[in-house]
Design a binder for these strands. Structure first.
Length: 506
RNA sequence: GGUCCGUUCAUCUAAGGGUCAGGAUUCAAGAUUUUCAUUCUUGCCAUAGGGGUUCGAAUCCCCUACGGACUACCA
């Protein structure tokens, strides 16, 4: 119907981090909003950094978050293959054409030679750059005699292909978020397009594939802005300028503490996951936590990420995926980097947790119980969840709030005892015990009424009666309505715990 | 070092020349409650600095400062 085609093109060098997830999300929202297509392309041109399992991880993580693709390495499509290593033969022709047209050349300098050259410049306080000014002094097809070049190529000598950046032209990149960015070509070095291992570099592969896959908009992180002029030049050199995609460079996600862009290594150092899913590094065995395993709901992660660098201009803060799709626009993406806000992430999760049916929450909490070798009637678990859910941000916190429903307290909060367990309390508790035992019908309401009557009769504050009982039942001064607690626990257990605390204080 | 990008409360951000600079999160206080939490109410807190342009600037321009990205045969 229309020609909006965008892609998310991660490199399988490890787990995706939330910055990457946000890039994927924005691409997804943009595609959906305009009825376009989203493509998942795997950019694995660096064989040395390939990490097994990373591709599967990326697919699973995005699926968990509800980001769906129309074409991609995992589902195929009209432009398959979608993995760059599988597209290897396709790149060679572009390189050959660039060389033939004088846009690129072969360079035979060894990594060691380049290193030496860089060090030499450094000694003189300068920075070496392989460009129009220096390429004439290097070992390449521009400086070597034609015959020598042919000989080296025939002999299979290792070489790379470099882009021949013009010495002095203005290159303009039109960015949908930042406006016009102009740089002089003289600032750029002759980037390697084709490596000695026969694989293209990111720059060539990216441009070639975006063109082949008819990508209309390149929405990617700001770290790519400096190389965007090269990409523009590449489109021009390959004769594709007319169908060049539009660029939108997203602001970076920053570390919440100090400075700098959020990176994979920040991991759990800062108290929040940087990965959508838990990741176990296959080489080191090191485990990094994920949002999913930490108890975040995918909707919360999506909502939080969507607002890190974008907003609809209204005061609405909570959005369904469909609302995000309807509201999204590239124009409303901010230019400055955004710091991750842990507290707000918690708040979002709380909000979405509250929206879940109690049965769902109870289902999750049952797993926690199972893990502790506790079993309970589903109706009872659901009831407990209903009582405590508003007090937590994560399902994992329910246990902290509700363990006493399943296990009698083994100790009593010293601070609470000090403050609330008075001299006359044991006597009061013995009366309370008596009262509850003789209740004709035991219910939360009955307990409440009986204690209220007792307090009035003895001219005691409700707190003097209720709080010690609360401590007896829960171990501290926290938790939901005491009447509800008593009701769930039942007479037998309430009496047992009352005895328990009295015995403990003797 | 060089090139490019950026800069509104602690954090995410709104206000695209004229508003008491708004909202959310956090934090604090109050109310409520038998506890804690929730909830409700209130409060604290910002246009980096300096120059212009203009009747008028958070908004446009310049300089400075600060921050960031990039500067590999990595993406």
């Amino acid at each position: 119907m229309n020609n909006i085609r965008v892609r998310f093109a991660p490199s399988p060098t490890g787990p995706l981090h939330i910055g990457g997830v946000r890039t994927a999300l924005y691409n997804y929202l943009f595609a959906r909003k305009y009825g376009g297509s989203l493509i998942l392309r795997i950019e694995d041109t660096d064989q040395a950094r390939f990490v097994p399992g990373a591709e599967e991880y990326i697919i699973e993580a995005l699926a968990w978050l509800g980001i769906r693709f129309d074409e991609g390495v995992h589902i195929g499509g009209a432009h398959a293959p979608y993995r760059q290593s599988d597209r290897k033969p396709l790149y060679r022709q572009h390189v050959d054409r660039l060389i033939a047209d004088g846009w690129a050349y072969c360079a035979f300098d060894t990594p060691e030679a380049l290193d030496a050259r860089r060090r030499e410049y450094e000694r003189q306080g300068k920075t070496f750059q392989y460009d129009a000014a220096t390429r004439g002094a290097m070992c390449n097809s521009l400086t070597l005699p034609e015959e020598e070049v042919r000989k080296r190529l025939n002999d299979g000598a290792p070489y790379v292909v470099r882009f021949k950046f013009p010495a002095d032209t203005q290159i303009t990149v039109n960015d949908l978020i930042r406006g016009t960015v102009t740089v002089n070509s003289g600032q750029s070095d002759d980037k390697v397009l084709f490596k000695s291992d026969g694989m293209p570099t990111y720059h060539l592969a990216n441009v070639a594939d975006d063109h082949a896959m008819q990508i209309s908009h390149v929405i990617r992180g700001e770290e790519w802005l400096p190389s965007a002029p090269l990409h523009v030049m590449l489109y021009r050199a390959l004769g594709w300028e007319d169908s060049m995609p539009q660029f939108a460079h997203l602001p970076l996600l920053l570390k919440p503490d100090g400075n700098g862009k959020l990176s994979k290594r920040d991991g759990d150092r800062l108290g929040f996951p940087v990965f959508p899913l838990q990741w176990r590094d296959p080489a080191s065995g090191e485990v990094s936590s994920g949002y999913r395993e930490s108890g975040y709901l995918p909707q919360a992660v999506i909502n939080m990420l969507a607002l890190l660098g974008w907003n609809p201009g209204t005061q609405q803060e909570k959005f369904t995926m469909q609302e995000l799709i309807d509201l999204f626009s590239l124009e409303r993406i901010s230019k400055a980097g955004a710091k991750f806000d842990l507290k707000k992430a918690h708040w979002f999760n709380h909000e979405y947790l509250m929206e879940q049916p109690v049965e769902t929450i109870a289902g999750w909490f049952s797993e926690t119980l199972k893990g502790k070798n506790l079993s309970a009637d589903p109706a009872r678990v659901a009831r407990v969840c209903r009582l405590v859910k508003e007090r937590v941000n994560f399902v994992s916190e329910i246990w902290d709030q509700a363990s006493f429903f399943f296990v009698a307290p083994e100790s009593y909060d010293p601070a609470a005892m000090k403050k609330r367990w008075k001299e006359n309390t044991p006597a009061v508790m013995r009366d309370v015990r008596q009262l509850l035992e003789s209740l004709p019908v035991f219910s939360g309401q009955a307990v409440h009424d009986a204690l209220q009557a007792y307090a009035e009769e003895r001219s005691l504050g409700m707190g003097e009666v209720m709080i010690p009982l609360r401590i007896a039942l829960t171990g501290g001064t926290f938790g939901p309505d005491l009447q509800e607690i008593a009701d769930v626990l039942g007479r037998e257990e309430v009496l047992r715990r009352t005895d328990g605390i009295l015995k403990n204080r003797e």
